[in-house]
Structures are given as C-alpha cells and as structure tokens.
Design a binder for these strands. Structure first.
Length: 717
DNA sequence: AGCACGCCGACT
DNA sequence: GTCGGCGTGCTC
C-alpha cells in the first residue's frame, strides 16, 4: 500500500519533501508524474520521485497531495536518475531541472484570491476599522478579487501587512486557487512515414571509422567517442549513425551550439531525415514549442535536435546522443539551473545506456586528452597540405594600427580587384572613455564594468548587459574633455583602412552593425557579389557559414582573446585563428596574415603554421603544470547578494571553512567576478581546484552546509 | 527563493 | 519606550 510520496519542487533547494497520498490516489501514484501540493502557503507543481508504504521520516506532520496531474509519468525512471545526477553534479535543485524539462504550460499556475468573511462585513461598521481596512473591505463586499488585482488597485506599500493582519483577525480569507487553462486537445496528426534519404556519401575511409564506432560500442551499454574532423566528414558519420539508430528503433538526440541556429540545420534534417526530426530552439513561439514537445513525447520524432536546453527534453528509447561543435561556450548554462551540456549529455547517455558522440574540428583540450587516453578518439582528418602563404607580423617593430606588410598585402589585392577579408575581435572604437583631467571613466550602472565607446553610433555600451547611454564628450565630474581610453577597437581599424584605401568599398560586420537580422546576410551577399572590396569583422563573422573564401585573409591582434583571464584562453586563441584561416582560398597565390604584439606565443605560432599536434602538447604541458583541467576539477563558486560587504564576508568565510582541507585543494580568490555586479547584485567568486572529484565534493558539501547565502557552482573538468 | 522569528539601532 | 533593519532557519 502506497501511503507516502517523495516530491521534488521547483524551488532552489537541494531537498525533497514527503507528502501523504490520499486514498483515492493510492492506486494511481507512480514515479515521474506531476502532482499539485501545498507548500508553505502556496500550491506548487511538484514531481514524484519516490514512493513509500510507511513514513520515511519521523516527527513530521505530512501534508496531503492535493491532486495528481498526470495519468502517465512525464518522466521515465532513467530520466529521473539522469536529472538527479545532473543536479548533484552542480549542487543545484533537482526540482528546478525537472521544471526546466517541461514546456511552461505544464506547470499549473495558481492565483491568490481574497474573500470577505462575515466578520469582515460586520467589522466595517466598527470604530476600530482603519481607513485602509475599510477601503479594502468595502471593495470586497461586491465580490472577491485576486490579490494581484487588489495590490494594483490600492497602491499601498504596506499592502501585504494590512492584508495578512486582516486575515489574522478573521475579516477576510485568502485562498490559493488553480488557474485552470483550458485543456489543450492535441490533434492527432498522422505519423509521417519514415522516409530517410539514402546517402552514399560515406567513402571507404569514413565507412571504416563509422564501423569502428559501431564495433567498439557495447550492445546496450554506454559508450563515448570524440570525432575530430572537418564538418563535412563529421556530418557524414553522424547521419550514418543516426540512420542505424533509427533502423534499430531508437531515437537520437542531436545538440548543436546556439550560433548555429540558422535554418541550415532544420533544412539539413528535413532533407536527410524527412519529417521525423523535431527541432526545438529559442526563437520558436510558445505554441510551436509545445506542439513539437508533444510530438516528441508521443514518440513521433526519430531525431530531437536543438541547442543545450534540448538536452532536458524527456523522451524514451534514446540510443544516440550527438553533441556537435563540442568546444563551443554556448554549451555552458550558467544561469540557474547551471550545467554544462557536455557533462549532462554524458550523464544522460550513461543512464540511457546510449552511445555518445562528441564532434569538433579542433576539440577542446580537455576532451581530446581524455578521449585519446581512453582510445575513443576518432581522428578523421589526414594531414592536408595547404598551399597558401602565411605570415606573422610583429607589431612591436611597426608603427601605426596597420603594419606595412599588411598594408602592402591588402593593397596588392585591392589593385587586382580581389576581395579582402579581415578580422579584429574587439568591439567599438575604444574599450572605454576617460576624462583627460580627472581620470573619470563611465561605468555600467548594472555591471560596474567600463563602458565601450562606440564612435559611429555615438553611444557607450556595456559589453555584458548591453546597457547603453548616449555619448558625452564633457566629463560630468569636472567638465573637461573625454578621450578614448584602453585598447582601440574595430572602428579605429575601419577608419584607418578608409584613410589608406579611400577608393575602396569597406564594410564592417559586428554585433552592433547587424542589429537588424537580415543586415548581416545583406552584407555577406554584397561581399559575395563583389560589391565590397574589404570586409572587416569580429569573431562572429568567422561563424558565418556563407562567408566566401578569399585570396587574402588578415587577422589583427588575436591577443585580445589570449589575454582573457580564462584557463582556456590559449586554446580559444588557437581556435579563433583556425576559424579565420578556413576562409583562405587554398591556392599558391593566397595569403594569410596575422598581425600581433605577441608573435612568438605558441597558440598563434601553432595555429598559423598548422601544427595542431604541437599546440595540444604544449597546452597540455601548461595545464598540467598549473593544475588546470583536464588535470584537475575546477569549481567556480559565485556568491551573489545586494550588500557587497556581506557577500564579501561570506566569501571570505569560505577560506575558514576549508582551512583543514588545504592539502587537497588550491583556492584562487575570493575576488570580484568578471561581471562585478548584475541586476543590482554584487558578484564575488572563488575558484577551487582539486585533483580528485571526491575531495572537491567533500569541500563543496561543507561549504554549502556552513555558508548560508545565495551561491552557485560551475564545475569544469 | 520566500517567509517568519529574533535581536540591536534611530525615532514618535 | 517602539519601528524596522537583515541574520538565521525552515519549508514535507
């Protein structure tokens, strides 16, 4: 006899709660169904994760489950254990993860309704009735109203206390009610026939690799591979594996980075997999998402594809997870519930006993190292001999923004009417504005970081929260002239190019210039059509799949990435250069040029001269030396709060809490997070490095127990 | 997270 | 003397 159920709730707590199961539900309760439960004074949509025949806890007055919301579980047992492990890994709330796994309409919405009581009506005529009480009571004699409505009607700051006081006196009653949305009827669309296009693009070499994966993977067991190769080859193997998975009656989960949200993916899936692919992404409407979600739930989609959030879409018979462009930062979800989709994919594949494929042309150092050690690295690329010339220009020996060599290079192409592609990854005109007299520098009111100076748009913009103000050239403190400060940005380079090549058509492609969605495509189209002589862009331009190849590609100051305070800065620089290099037409008279103040650093050298083997070796040596992943687990603890002093105190307390564990870990900080302040909350971070995950967990557990304040953890491994 | 309880400063 | 600050604890 099932009498009690463990329920997890969508609240930021690492706890579950036990409820009594009412008699009428005792035959219907199952793990994985949604329930409506009273919690404090609220009604919440929770999820049953465990069932008991006797009370699992003592001395607790259990509340009753109010209502069962499903006949059939919305979460399978394996999905439940996957999400549980994910929440354990990131010290986040299981309930919040489950909540995020459902479309918004699956959470029952409640409202607070206020009724007048008999006693309240009588109270109206008494002298002890205050003006504000009388006002509200009078209003309620007509009919009941929701709390929200009343709060807006009577714009009183003390509204809450007046109301709760009146409830205590028995004048009114406050009830939580379910806001029933009309039950949506799902039109039972006919399942599209499986019409997977046969594609013979796998040559014998790829065939061998795909077969290698198939033979190494255990029957009905978790296995994981990293495919390191160019997009085309990778995708050929992906589709081969998807076809095989589908043929054996299993489903595929396909994850791709946010920036790839181009309709290309959709078209590709439609073309190769017929109507059996379901793509979910953030640009879809609520309704569209819900319909797609329901299709997936009914098992009609053979392939479920989308960005990181799609990892949390519940469905059964999962046989294959593909995570493409494994290195991309958009797989990090840093907002609550925080998780890394790469690690999430692994946990899910483990629970589902599925095959997991990571893919990238230049995989992350961490994953490459681990895969190589485990023998699960599938390297598809033969060393390709490229023919174009390449050069690293030492800026220290040059004057001006554009070096002589770069100028000559561009000039030659411009004269021959050949388009030139240039990259410079720093936005705006200057990274800040500064007063020429008193050193005043305008900061973002939300994040407290320096505002970037945009000359063309005449604005100051925050690079984190996009807060923007109109430009002012007089210091508000002392009235002196404001001048550009910090490093110069892409607009300076554009001005410089225009001065040097006054007769050329020069366009620049960066975030601000492409506010309007199709403007980016417009520019690329014009460039393809030969209407633009020199195209200048930030890193985002390197992600433009339609950008044509060019005989001359130049990269300015890649050290803007190298100087980031990130243990992956070297790798990111290497990748950035590799990305830009892809746009060089492979011909003997093509040229690739990098201009930098750090010409001898290995990420730049190795990228330019095609020595990825040396790059990975060098990078791994450094990571080992400094104790960074993959040689350690790195936890990023973020403390947040309104009051900076208390946040700082709490974060310093951490040092005290872990002082007897100093031999197992290394601590950096506390220090301000890269974004000092966000939405009015101060942010202080502490980095903990540990060789063993177990000792890291021990320490984090202790920190969570001893330090009571808002905080979140992100773990890199 | 919210909300209640609880102990120390500036006010009628 | 009280109103109210947010530190601490709890939610089945």
């Amino acid at each position: 006899m099932i009498l009690f159920a463990q329920v997890v709730l969508p609240v930021p707590l690492r706890k579950s709660f036990v409820y009594r199961v009412p008699e009428e539900y005792q035959k219907k309760v199952r793990k994985g169904i949604r329930v409506l439960v009273p919690f404090r004074k609220n009604l919440l949509t929770g999820f049953i994760t465990e069932l008991f025949s006797e009370a699992p806890l003592k001395n607790i007055k259990f509340k009753k489950i109010r209502e069962l919301l499903d006949e059939e579980p919305v979460f399978s047992l394996s999905f439940l254990s996957f999400t549980k492990r994910l929440s354990d890994y990131y010290y986040s709330s299981w309930g919040e993860i489950l909540h995020a796994s459902l479309p918004p309409s699956f959470a029952v919405k409640t409202r607070t309704v206020i009724y007048i009581c008999k006693k309240g009506k009588a109270y109206l005529n008494q002298d002890s009735c205050s003006d504000s009480e009388r006002e509200i009571l009078k209003f309620l004699t007509r009919k009941h109203y929701t709390e929200l409505y009343l709060r807006r009607k009577f714009k009183k700051s003390s509204f809450s206390s007046i109301i709760s006081n009146m409830e205590e006196k028995g004048l009114i009653s406050i009830k939580k009610e379910i806001r029933r949305s009309p039950k949506r009827e799902w039109n039972n669309t006919q399942k599209a026939p499986t019409q997977i296009e046969i594609d013979d693009s796998l040559d014998s070499d790829l065939r061998k690799k795909a077969d290698e994966i198939k033979s190494k993977r255990g029957e009905d067991a978790f296995s994981c591979f990293l495919i390191s190769s160019s997009k085309k080859k990778r995708e050929a193997v992906y589709f081969d594996l998807i076809r095989e998975t589908t043929a054996s009656g299993l489903k595929t989960l396909f994850l791709f980075p946010e920036i790839e949200l181009s309709d290309r993916i959709l078209k590709e899936f439609k073309k190769k997999l017929g109507e059996n692919a379901a793509v979910l992404h953030s640009r879809m409407s609520e309704k569209q998402k819900e319909l797609t979600w329901e299709r997936i739930r009914r098992g009609e989609a053979e392939v479920v594809a989308g960005p990181r959030s799609v990892l949390l879409t519940p469905f059964e018979k999962l046989g294959l997870i593909i995570l493409d462009q494994e290195h991309e930062d958009s797989y990090y979800q840093k907002e609550s519930p925080a998780y890394d989709a790469r690690i999430g994919a692994r946990l899910r594949a483990e629970e589902e006993k599925a095959v997991l494929i990571y893919g990238s042309e230049y995989p992350s150092v961490e994953l490459l190292y681990r895969s190589r050690n485990k023998g699960s690295l599938i390297d598809l690329d033969k060393v390709q001999k490229t023919q174009f010339k390449r050069d690293i220009i030492d800026s220290r020996k040059q004057t001006g923004v554009i070096s002589r060599a770069m100028k000559t290079g561009i000039m030659k192409r411009v004269e021959q009417k050949e388009p030139v592609t240039l990259f410079f990854n720093r936005h705006g005109y200057a990274s800040s504005l500064v007063c020429s007299q008193c050193d005043f520098t305008p900061k973002c009111q939300n994040c407290e970081v320096l505002l970037t100076y945009y000359k063309k748009e005449e604005k100051l913009i925050c690079r984190y929260c996009h807060y923007s103000t109109d430009l002012f050239m007089k210091c508000p403190e002392c009235g002196s002239r404001m001048v550009p400060g910090g490093g110069f940005g892409i607009e300076v380079l554009e001005e410089e190019l225009k001065r040097n090549f006054p007769d050329s058509c020069i366009r620049s492609l960066h975030k601000l210039a492409v506010k309007k969605k199709n403007q980016e495509e417009e520019i690329i189209k014009d460039y393809r059509a030969g209407k633009i002589d020199i195209l200048l862009g930030t890193q985002m331009m390197a992600h433009q799949s339609k950008l044509p190849l060019s005989y001359f590609v130049g990269v300015f100051y890649p050290e803007s990435i190298l100087r980031l305070s990130d243990f992956r800065a070297g790798y990111k620089t290497f990748r950035y250069i590799k990305e830009t290099m892809k746009f060089v037409k492979d011909a003997p008279n093509s040229e690739f040029m990098v201009q930098t103040y750090l010409p001898h650093t290995y990420p730049i050298q190795n990228a330019v001269y095609d020595d990825s083997v040396s790059f990975y070796e060098h990078e791994l040596r450094n990571r080992r030396l400094m104790g960074y992943p993959p040689f350690s687990y790195l936890a990023e603890l973020l403390f947040t709060g309104k009051d900076l002093r208390s946040v700082a105190r709490k974060s310093r307390k951490l040092l005290d809490v872990v002082k007897d564990k100093k031999d197992q870990i290394e601590i950096l900080g506390p220090s301000f997070a890269p974004v000092k302040k966000l939405r009015g909350k101060n942010r202080v971070q502490v980095i903990i490095k540990s060789k063993e995950r177990s000792s890291l967990d021990e320490i984090l557990e202790k920190i969570f127990k001893d330090i009571k304040t808002r905080k979140s953890v992100f773990v890199y491994e």
